[in-house]
């Protein structure tokens, strides 16, 4: 006997967009980020849990939630075993390499220091380039690092580029695109295949409707 479906949603802006998209397909009508409540059950008996973005994968991998909605930046950094069955088309931004000037990569054989919240993504990106590298993991205000001499460059998520510009940084290279994905636990996928694929397909279709608006 299958238990009801549980969906993990990230708190913050991405979660709000996910709820809006779920409501477009008639789900999550009573789910709101404007309350301190962290769990909801809607008319379709689907349970929603609101968790920090960085924890969405953990909840899905441990099968507390069957499905999760999360940015591909978190997926790439955590390298989990979950299925990534749909691109939901919102939360679009990009990973970029930024610094004080374009020439910073042309330095001689010295070690390039990179500050980032995403060491795995950074390591994978620089692997192909054969540069000597020191990755400095920091958890916030990454833009400060080159300004204060903590690093030569940064790798971070860029949505509009305004924060970089305000701090005198420029994009040296774009690394890859980021957007919201639907992830699924492997066991849930097998036990609840029909309901999971039905919802994710409807979410994908809602993306088309939204973009035609």
């Amino acid at each position: 006997m299958n238990t009801p479906l549980t969906i993990a949603l990230p708190t913050g802006r991405l979660g709000e967009q996910a709820i809006e998209r779920l409501q477009m397909i008639g789900l999550a009508k009573n789910v709101s980020t404007k309350t301190r409540k962290l769990t909801f059950t809607d008319d379709a008996n689907i349970k929603y849990i609101m968790v920090k973005p960085i924890d969405v994968i953990t909840y899905v991998e441990k099968k507390v939630a069957d499905v999760g909605i999360i940015g591909s930046d978190v997926i790439l950094e955590q390298q989990s075993h979950v299925y990534e069955i749909a691109d939901l088309g919102f939360g679009q931004c990009k990973f970029s390499l930024a610094g004080l000037n374009q020439d910073i990569l042309k330095q001689n054989d010295a070690v390039l220091t990179v500050a980032t919240k995403y060491p795995m993504v950074t390591k994978a990106y620089f692997k192909k380039r054969g540069l000597k590298l020191e990755i400095i993991k920091i958890n916030g205000s990454v833009e400060l690092a080159p300004l204060l001499g903590l690093s030569d460059v940064i790798v971070d998520i860029v949505e509009t580029g305004k924060t970089l510009k305000a701090n005198g940084l420029i994009i040296i290279e774009d690394i890859l695109d980021v957007s919201a994905k639907a992830i699924v636990n492997r066991v849930s996928y097998r036990f609840k295949y029909d309901v999971i694929t039905d919802i994710t397909k409807r979410l994908e279709n809602s993306m088309v409707v939204k973009s035609n608006d």
Partner: peptide
């Protein structure tokens, strides 16, 4: 093989 309550294979 998967079991309903175990999160992995």
């Amino acid at each position: 093989g998967y079991l309903q309550n175990i999160p992995y294979t």
